[in-house]
Design a protein around this nucleic acid. Structure first.
Lengths: 257, 257
DNA sequence: CCTTGACCCTGACGCGACGTTAGGCCCTAC
DNA sequence: GTAGGGCCTAACGTCGCGTCAGGGTCAAGG
């Protein structure tokens, strides 16, 4: 595979319908780094790079930020097929969304026809409830592991307010104790740190979805790549996000041998 | 109409699903100026403002720039119904576009299923050919006067390369002579300037679509509001765009009495 | 072998459409 | 009358590029 010709930026740009500058930018931010360089420093794109670019453009068209796209493609890197399927699902969602908006416009047309005014709350239907941040987060979860996502939904839907408070307290406690370890200079592959990682894994496993040590690592990768989560961790101590991830990895090695 | 309650920014924001900051911004750039202010300086939005906001959000969702939206809504201000219809058309176009992309993803899925690689040129189908600038311009024309647009399409489709060269030369000559007038300090309502404007109008009328002096003014307004056209004019002389517009207006007054 | 012209490189600044403080006024409710 | 929630303007930050500026690369032709 990939035995085809390599392409220069300009060629890729015209192929994909983007500008050269865009490809430069994707390179700089690490979203699409060409798999080779010529002797003179020219970027050289292989077939796989083109595939990745197509997915990037598709997700951009759907409104995702470049950061989100990077995370999505990383998580789904091992399985092209399910990535494509997920993209298909998103496109179908957009199809339905567009249809809803059209129906809204039709209602508006009817209203003006009859000389009436539309209800103000009804006016923005279809347009209104699109919280992009929430949507990105949800998609990332689903993308990461759709089974885990569904299971999580099933369980959490049954929790009450008191449950949530308890769960949150439990989770926060782990983070706090982890911060203490970091402050004391304990290493991430120390038993204390690994124990805490294990405790966190069980926390997820118990309250949200079945979570093996391997799955735990994947989830952690997703979290620490997310700036929102990173901010949360960093507030409890500088470098805590990375420390946490390392502890989880060490715990995985320990438990799987 | 509009006898309902007036709304503050926050209310409008939650109704429409945008942030307060967005409304502030739309106000500052003149895209959506609330129709009233309270004694204390609070923005107050009436029902008509909400309608306009809905159209803005819809066109934004379709990818138009705020500048383009402003022009579109101004041009279509007199006729709500045809504006809504045009929006509907755009939404249907997007529906079709999304369907095309889905078919592309399906082809990619088939290819991976059979372990084949897709053709590189085929890979970006549906995604590729979306020149946003061209699209905006075209939509603006269509929006401004769909009859003129269709007529223009009909005629220009029959022109050959030689025709185009001649037409362009003719158009450029007018601009050049106009620049000379401006350099000589001639006023825009001077006969020389008005004659040139009239010549330009006939140029359009002959080669593109029937163009009355009133239509000519509208078109000129559209052009000079467009930064690309403005850049073109300014290259031939500072202030030429405005001078041109003024000359056209003067010519209209002269010919309609 | 040298030149020419198309293409590529790395900065660096600019811009549209907001997000995000910062500091202060308004206004309703208790 | 004061507390707190909402509003104001001003100003800087961010993302995803567009657009030069200054200079190296590369294939073709003389």
């Amino acid at each position: 595979m990939g035995a085809r010709r390599l392409h220069t930026v300009g060629e890729v740009a015209t192929l994909a319908g983007v500008t050269v500058r865009t490809l430069h930018y994707y390179d700089r931010v690490g979203l699409l780094v060409p798999s080779g360089r010529s002797e003179g420093g020219y970027r050289l794109y292989a077939y796989g790079d083109l595939e990745r670019l197509r997915e990037i453009r598709l997700l951009r068209e759907l409104g995702f930020s470049l950061a989100a796209i990077g995370r999505l493609l990383d998580v789904a890197a091992h399985d092209k097929r399910s990535a494509l399927k997920a993209q298909r699902d998103l496109l179908v969602e957009r199809l339905e969304r567009t249809e809803r908006i059209i129906r809204g416009v039709d209602r508006a047309l009817n209203a003006t026809e009859e000389g009436q005014e539309m209800d103000e709350t009804e006016m923005f239907e279809g347009l209104e409830e699109f919280d992009h941040k929430r949507y990105e987060a949800e998609v990332e979860q689903r993308w990461g592991d759709s089974e885990a996502y569904k299971e999580s939904k099933r369980r959490t839907s049954r929790y009450g307010k008191a449950d949530w408070a308890r769960i949150k307290k439990e989770g926060d406690a782990v983070v706090r104790r982890l911060a203490e370890l970091l402050a004391r200079g304990v290493r991430a592959d120390d038993r204390e740190a690994m124990d805490l990682a294990e405790e966190h894994r069980r926390h997820i496993d118990r309250w949200f979805y079945p979570c093996s040590p391997g799955m735990h690592r994947q989830v952690a990768a997703l979290y620490t790549a997310d700036t929102r989560f990173e901010a949360y961790f960093e507030k409890h101590g500088a470098g805590l996000a990375g420390f946490f991830q390392a502890a989880i990895r060490a715990n995985e090695v320990r438990s799987t041998g």
